[in-house]
Amino acid sequence: MFEGFHPFTHDSGEAQIYGVIGGDGPPLLLLHGYPQTHAMWHKVAPKLAESFTVVAADLRGYGRSSKPETTSDHAPYSKRAMAKDMASLMEGRGFLKFHVGAHDRGARVAHRLAIDFSDRVEKLAVLDIAPTREMYANTTDAFARAYWHWFFLIQKAPFPERMIEPDPDAYWKKKCGSGVAGLTPFTQHAMNDYLAAFRNPKTIHASCEDYRAAATIDIKHDNEDGDFKLKCPVLALWGVHGAIEAHFDCLALWRMRAREVQGEALPAGHYLAEELPDEIITQFNRFFAKD
């Protein structure tokens, strides 16, 4: 995976962030989701590296990045704190302006990054999410059943942690294999990386904290922004077989939070970059190309 890329670790001041960097051209930061790692980009990163300097990083709490101690208000796993890591990481590579392509939890971090560092994020592509606050506000019974983990993982520590820890592989495979594609989107190499990370009880705890923050402090931060809309162009892509398509009007919700939104549903489930890598390469190359 990631041939020609170089691994590095960046000290953000609050966390040690692991990433890989490769390619040439304008900088493009790629952020993964739950319960994955930067490895989810391995099918698209080498091709994107022909046109961009690609940086794929593990979010704090995930993969090979460090897992800072949490606090009772979940601030260390707020999207604000996670976004600050990434601004610092890109600055450390010499990039004060960059594009971001992100999936799932990483896309929530990317959304916050584009708000808090609006002068740095030039374009934002989000895969298979609608904005957090708007998703909670529009939660129905059907969505709560499809995304049951949103409501399970936020239960008070250490309850969900203790239930996942005894058999993290079974949980991971059920959670990620429940889409129409089953476990077929995941190569053995990538899956090894995900499972190795997820077997660490600290990853399980940190990822629960990611969700607890989303249900509390992240929404507080969103509310402080009021009706603020991102100025940078936003590309929203989602899977036609996933929960976003089934339960939300994705583009309408993004248009509540951004001025310039384009996007569409693609013929896939949740794991777009692993189910439709060629399509994601095409979409990213087109969207992030110089205007």
């Binding site: 059943r145 049951w148 409501f151 239960q155």
Partner: peptide
């Protein structure tokens, strides 16, 4: 029918056990 995010958090076991 009355489900919301708030209720989904409090009665999470309805979606988990199902």
């Amino acid at each position: 029918a009355d489900w919301s995010a708030d209720l989904a958090m409090k009665a999470y076991h309805w979606t988990f056990l199902a």
